[in-house]
């Protein structure tokens, strides 16, 4: 029998604005047991009447002692995400339970090529993998394809720019769905087979593929990867949000 994952009280130590609607929370969690990149935590909020509610958030970085990072995308009308991005202040406590999940994870000891495909805030658990790769000085060949609406929706932009310059074996491509930067050769459109062929790995390289984003995005990318010849058993997915139908 495994020990129960206990609720811990975390304290907000700082925030970083990532996009106009996304914030990274830097949390101090005394006794944090550590985690593997790709894992998530449950966050629980409780009001004065005793009403409480929980949501899951991906960890955005490897653990640094008792410090963990969550990137929270503000969802309009989202009871928890609006609180965390608008009201929650440095010094405030919040309850947290984890780490959770042992499938959508990348172990820094792995050397096989990795393809990361993110839609919008789906980059968060994939960023934890990129950061863990750097921390472990891994040379595993990594490619990230990030699909965003417009240049202002890019997460971790300056860090990723530095990473492609300084870290051998890491390629990053951004595809824009609504508006592309001036001078961009690729017109804004949804991600398709040509993008995954151009910026991904050939199936013969047998990469492990991690796909994270809204359900429609993940369905399309995962099916396209299978269509391009990738073994479905090497495609790991994490979806969020409604189906849209």
């Amino acid at each position: 029998m495994s020990p129960r994952l206990e609720w811990r009280v975390a304290t907000l130590a700082g925030v970083r604005q990532e996009t106009p609607t996304a914030l990274t929370l830097l949390l101090d969690v005394p006794g944090w047991p550590g985690h593997v990149p790709g894992q998530h935590v449950d966050v629980r909020l409780t009001d004065e009447d005793g009403y409480s509610t929980q949501r899951s958030y991906s960890l955005a970085a490897p653990a640094d002692g008792d410090r963990v990072e969550l990137t929270v995308q503000r969802v309009k009308g989202g009871e928890v995400s609006e609180y965390l991005t608008d009201t929650f202040s440095v010094g405030d406590p919040v309850e947290l339970r984890g780490p959770v999940g042992g499938w959508f994870v990348w172990h820094p000891s792995r050397t096989a090529p990795v393809l990361l495909v993110a839609g919008g805030s789906g980059i968060v658990p994939l960023m934890a993998m990129i950061r863990a790769r750097r921390q472990a000085r891994s040379r595993a060949p990594f490619r990230l394809i990030h699909s965003v609406r417009s240049p202002s929706d890019q997460y971790y932009a300056s860090e990723l720019r530095r990473a492609t310059r300084d870290e051998g074996g890491l390629d990053i491509a951004t595809v824009y769905t609504r508006s592309a930067p001036t001078g961009s050769a690729r017109p804004p459109r949804r991600i398709g087979p040509a993008d995954l062929e151009l910026y991904g790995w050939p199936p013969q390289f047998e990469p492990t593929c991690y796909v994270c984003g809204p359900t429609g995005f993940v369905e399309k990318v995962a099916n396209t990867l299978v269509g391009l010849g990738h073994d479905p058993r090497r495609i790991r997915t994490e979806r969020f949000g409604p189906t849209g139908d």
């Binding site: 629980r44 909020l45 409780t46 004065e48 009871e79």
Partner: peptide, 13 residues
């Protein structure tokens, strides 16, 4: 019951 989150108000009914 968990610790109270400062400024958190229930919105869902």
């Amino acid at each position: 019951m968990g610790i109270v989150s400062p400024g958190f108000r229930r919105r869902r009914r």
